[in-house]
Structures are given as structure tokens and as C-alpha cells.
Design a binder for these strands. Structure first.
Lengths: 90, 90
DNA sequence: CTGGATCCCGTAAGATACTG
DNA sequence: CAGTATCTTACGGGATCCAG
């Protein structure tokens, strides 16, 4: 729960499964989440090894986030959770 | 996450799998949790249908909590989560 | 424009005392 | 025994502001 819990980590993982994504792209796709939330959650997820952070020194700077293999495996878990919710009407 | 999240619900489910358990028994087994936490979490879990509450009109009163089938199925999910953590060293 | 830091608030969590 | 009442603290969450 400490790794996957909270309000946004699951959504972030979901949106990252398509491939490396920029900070603001995430911010746009996760409509209801403030940039602070995304930044905090990404930092935690980087520390737990779910995602990697890449800084591209263009101008203006670009920062992309990408799933690690561990992050991909987490998506499998989330899918189990999802199926469980659906099976029990939740 | 809303159903299983928080700090104590998983532990409560785990301790209830042995069968109907009394409030104070839970309180003793979940060392670090105050009675307030347990009471609040149990109330939520009753509302989401994970557990049932049974009042036995002895003197003094006894109250036991028991897993519903839905609660049992949640244990399966938690086990998946646990296995996932173990497999990835967490 | 980009990514992120700061401020403020509400709720969860924790400790303790009290009640039927 | 099984909670409730009350208070304090910690953290998640949201809006806003800052730097490159």
C-alpha cells in the first residue's frame, strides 16, 4: 500500500504504460491532479523504483518519465485489483 | 484503494480470517492500533461489506466481527499484493 | 512556456480519558 | 467489554507563486 497507495499513483502508472511521457503531458492527461501532486508522486515512485526520470537539456528543458520493469509488473497487480472490483460490482 | 487502503484495514482482514473475532481480541492482536482506529476502520469495512458485526446480548456485552465472502475475496487480492512485493524484494 | 516550490487546509492517525 | 469524546500531530491534497 505504501508503494501503490494514494490517490494518483495508479493513474500515473496507467498513463506511463504507453511509453516515456513528459511531465506536462501527464499533467494534462490527469485532469484533476495538480502539478504538485504529480511531482510528489513521481518522486516517490522514482525512489521506490517504479519509474525513471530523464532530463533532456533542450530549451526549454524537457523531463520525461518512464516505467521500469518493476513499474510494468505493478500494472499487472493493478489489473488484478481492477478485475476484483469489477467482479464484486464495486 | 478506497476500500482496502489506509493503515489498518489489511491487518484487520488478516486477523479476521481465522474466524469471528471480538473487538478486544483484535485490539490486542493489532498492537500498534488504538481502539479508535479499529472502531473507525471496522465501521467503514462494515459499510463497504467486508465484515459483519454481531452483537451478543450477554453481560457484559460481546461484539464479534466476521468476514463476509467479499472480505474473504479481498484476502486473495492482498495475497497477490504480498507475493508481488516478495518477488520484487520489497 | 517548462518543471517545480510554497502556502494553506482538511482529514487520517495517534494518545488518552471517559461512558454504558 | 466495547466503544465514544476530545485533543494534538502528521500528511495528503489543492491553489497559487517562482525560476529557467
Amino acid at each position: 500500500m505504501r508503494i501503490l497507495g494514494g490517490k494518483w499513483k495508479a493513474s500515473i502508472l496507467w498513463h506511463l504504460q504507453a511509453g516515456p511521457t513528459r511531465f506536462n503531458a501527464l499533467s494534462r492527461e490527469l485532469g484533476g491532479a495538480s502539478k504538485k501532486m504529480i511531482a510528489e508522486r513521481l518522486k516517490e515512485m522514482e525512489e521506490t523504483g517504479l519509474v525513471t526520470r530523464q532530463v533532456v537539456a533542450t530549451k526549454p528543458v524537457a523531463v520525461t518519465y518512464e516505467l521500469t520493469p518493476f513499474g510494468h509488473s505493478a500494472l499487472g497487480i493493478l489489473e488484478s485489483l481492477h478485475d476484483w472490483c469489477v467482479d464484486h460490482d464495486v
